[in-house]
Structure formats: C-alpha cells, structure tokens
Write a protein that binds this DNA or RNA. Structure first.
Length: 422
RNA sequence: GUGGGUAUAGCUCAGGUGGUUAGAGCACCAGAUUGUGGCUCUGGGGGCCGUCGGUUCGAGUCCGAUUAUCCACCCCA
C-alpha cells in the first residue's frame, strides 16, 4: 500500500457535518454586516511581500517570523496573506475606491496564514471575518464598528464576552510617550523579565501587556498612556466612550491593550471570551488612520476589526450552543427488487429536480438496511417502493418521527407537494 | 523560536516489573425478523501498536532519533 499523506501541520479539514456550523455562522455574520450597510469584498490569497512589510510593519512578529513567503517563477517575492487589513487597504488604493464616495464599508470572510506553533485556538491557517471602514475620522464610527462586532457575537449566542478598549495615541503624541515609557523601564531594567528586556528595545508598549507578576507590579507606576494623549486624541477618546455609553455598549478601559501590528492609532480594542480553557481573544481591531497614506494612497482615516471564526466556533462548542444542523435528506426512497430500483432512480431524480432533498440506496442493500440508512440521514419521511406499490401505483410517505403517514401517488409532482407544505 | 505531556481499530481508551495468536465500548456490515429504522440479542470485517534505528534469545512494553498532536510561553484571531 502506498504511503498516506496527511494535511500540513496546523491546518484543518472541515469535514461534512462540521460544515453546517460554518455555513450557519458565515450567513449570520453576513447578515450582521448587511445590517450595517457593509458590502463584501474579496481579495487574493497572496500579495507582494512588500505590502505586508510596509502595511503591517517590518518589526512586528507577524512579519518577522510568521509569514509564508516564497518567490514565484520570475523571482518576485510573494506572501500568503497573514491578515486582511493590508489587502483591503491595497485594493482601496489600487482601485481608487475613495473616488466612489466615502465612507466605504466592507467586510470579508477569508483565510489567513501564519507560521505559528499550533495550539488551542491557534492554527497556521485560520479564518477571519473582518470589517474595514474607510473615511470617517470621528469616534462615532469607532462606536458603530464596536456595535457591529458586538452584534455578531450576540446573534451567535455567545455570552461572557467582554469588550476592552484603549487608546494608544497618534504620531503626534505616541513618540513622546514611548520615549518616556522607555526611560521609565530602562531605569528599572533589572526588575524586568527576560522577554521584557527584548520588548524594551523593540516595542516598550508591549511591556504593559506582560503577564509576569514582577513586570505587572512595576508598571503600576509607569506613566499611563491615556494621560499622555494629545488634545485631538484625548477628545476622540472621550467621544468614543460617550458614544459607547449612548449605545448602551458595556466596556472596560484596559490601558494594557497594545496591538502587535504597527498600523494602529488611537482606538484599539479586544473582545475576550471566557472559555473553559481560559480567556481567548475572539475579536480585535482598532483605528489605523495612517495606513492608507503609508501605502501610497490618499490620506484617509480608517478602522476595522478581525474576528477568528475557528475561535468563535470553539467558544460556541464549549458553551454547547451550536445550532442543530438540518437533516441532509428530507425523503428517502427505499426500493425492493430490480424494477422498483429502476423506478426509484427516476422518481428520486424528478423529486430532486423539483427541489426536494431526496436520496436513495446506491449500495444494493436490503430493505431493513435502507431503513437504517434513512434513519441515520435523519430523513423525516421514507417511501418504500415494492411490488405492491408498483402494482397499485401508489404508496405512503412513512413518517419516521411518529407522526401521520401521508398516502401518495408515485408521481414526483404529487409527492413534492407534501414537501412544499412542510 | 523555547519548555513539557501524548502517540495501540474509524472514534474513546485498556494492555503491572519485556514472554504464545494485541483487547473493550461506540461506530460500521450481516443475521435473528422472506416488505419497514430506533430497543435487544448473535455473528463479522477492520491494527506493520506513528515512523526509523538501538538494546535483547524475544519489544506494543525499555533506550535514541524523527514526525504528528495537545498544553504553556513568545505572539496572535
């Protein structure tokens, strides 16, 4: 026997039976996005590597160690998309979408690829539902975006999800803050954990996010971000909280939220779900006012979020609130004998053409076994086709769930009527 | 990238200190019931014990490597 091949590390098959949950969730998310007048955008799976170097930031972990980068046959460096925002911004610029009038509100459902070590809720290929809004500078847009994200999780049935927000300033106020933060931690370098030493050099903001008790204690006295915001950022921050309150959206201010992608400005947020295994970020995003300009486009404020579909489904599964999938088959036709089998082939096909989810035996099994198959498929009705039925040109739709049986002729139109009514 | 656990049937797992032909439950197939599913009973198929190498008269069991998987960290959705 030839050696078998399995899927690469960290990527999953979504098997029949499991796809129902995906279809349900995707439809729900599209519906939510539609409620907010967002249109779908689709973009390629790979981009020029340069897009992510400039968009996401070449000092970030995602870019430095997690990208699937390769050269094509002409030696161009391409990269499997590690996140969606850069691609959407690229398309926005490339097609001059600003010219069609702002704001532009788009959403996508697409896989992302990151070379990570797989673990709970972490894969090398994962899917995100993302929303990006281009144009509005005011915090009302931030509040609407958060409302949309919240609606998605609420409609999915998730409880125990908390929203945490923060503001990390803008190019006007952040450099000064980063400097003072770096100075603060440099003076106390001896007390920082090993990884925070690295963070001090690369991105001192991240020290605020460290879980080590020592670092957590140390940062108590660190200069707070929110107090170092410039007047514009401060009023945006103020406006955001007012709008959230007006919308009745519960949130907690968490000055330790720092996003790992360089393009964020001002508003950053996370929706954290409390699963059995521990807290997991289900959705995260923020404002990225500088990204479009940085990628060579018109100076356009923008904001967005990404929501991890695998994590969402994981959360729904642990809470046991995934909806039940509809049966794959509405009517199973069980045939006995060659003549009946031929008749069932034709009848089943006509029913399918009429839109009935009909199925029949293809394995040449006994009547009993066919009944069993119908049961396993969850078919609510079975039509047995045997000598008697053929002779009388009539049969009965046997109700598999204990309800009334329905007498019927053997014409597809007559049978189909019963299913249109259901 | 760093550290730890695990790997036996499609699935969940048993197989003290090495010793005949590797087991159970569930699932699958068939029969009991010559034209009727679920419940019950009986039988059946299905395994190079992750892979490669080592120790040994003898390895599912011990050792090493490798791969996969799970968990924690880094980071992230």
């Amino acid at each position: 026997m030839a050696e078998t091949i399995s899927a690469p590390r960290g990527v999953n098959d979504i098997l029949p039976g499991k796809t129902d949950a995906w279809l349900w969730l995707e439809a729900l998310l599209r519906e939510c996005a539609g409620s907010f007048a967002c249109q779908e955008i689709r973009f390629p799976t790979f981009e020029h590597t340069e897009l992510f170097l400039r968009g996401v930031g070449d000092t970030t972990d995602v870019v430095q160690k997690e990208m699937y980068t390769f050269d094509d046959k002409k030696g161009r460096s391409l990269t499997l998309r590690p996140e969606g925002t850069a691609s959407v911004a690229r398309a926005f610029i490339q097609h001059s979408l600003a010219g069609q009038g702002l704001p532009l509100k788009v959403y996508y459902i697409a896989p992302n690829f990151r070379y990570e070590k797989p673990q709970a809720g972490r894969l090398r290929q994962h899917h995100q539902f993302g929303v990006e809004v281009f144009g509005p500078a005011g915090a009302a847009a931030d509040a609407e975006l958060l409302s949309l994200a919240g609606l998605c999780m609420e409609r999915a049935g998730l409880s125990d999800v908390s929203l945490r927000i923060n503001s990390i300033g803008c190019p006007v106020c952040r450099p000064a803050y980063q400097k003072s933060l770096a100075a603060f931690f440099e003076a106390r370098q001896a007390d920082l954990c090993h990884t925070c030493h690295d963070r001090l050099a690369r991105n001192p903001l991240r020290i605020l996010d460290c879980k080590e008790p020592g670092c957590a204690a140390l940062r108590q006295d660190a200069p707070p971000v929110l107090e170092s915001l410039c007047p514009d950022c401060a009023s945006h921050w103020e406006e955001l909280r007012e709008n959230l309150t007006a919308l009745g959206i519960a949130f907690t201010v968490d000055p330790h939220i720092v996003r790992g992608l360089d393009y964020y400005t001002r508003t950053v947020f996370e929706f954290v779900g409390d699963l059995g295994a521990g807290p997991l970020t289900l959705c995260a995003g923020g404002r990225y006012d500088g990204l479009v300009k940085n990628l060579g486009g018109p100076d356009t404020p923008a904001l967005g979020f990404g929501m991890g579909l695998e994590r969402l489904l994981l959360a729904l599964e642990t809470q046991g609130i995934l909806p039940q999938a509809p049966p794959v088959c509405e009517l199973f036709i069980a045939a006995m004998g060659e003549e009946a089998a031929k008749r069932s082939l034709i009848l089943t096909n006509r029913l399918r053409v009429l839109g009935v989810h009909a199925d029949r035996d293809l394995m040449g099994r006994s009547l009993k076994a066919q009944m069993k198959t119908a049961d396993r498929l969850g078919a609510p009705y079975v039509l047995v086709l045997g000598e008697t039925e053929l002779k009388e040109n009539a049969g009965v739709l046997k109700n598999m769930r204990g309800g009334e049986n329905i007498p019927c002729s053997l014409t597809a139109e007559d049978i189909a009527k019963s299913f249109y009514k259901l």
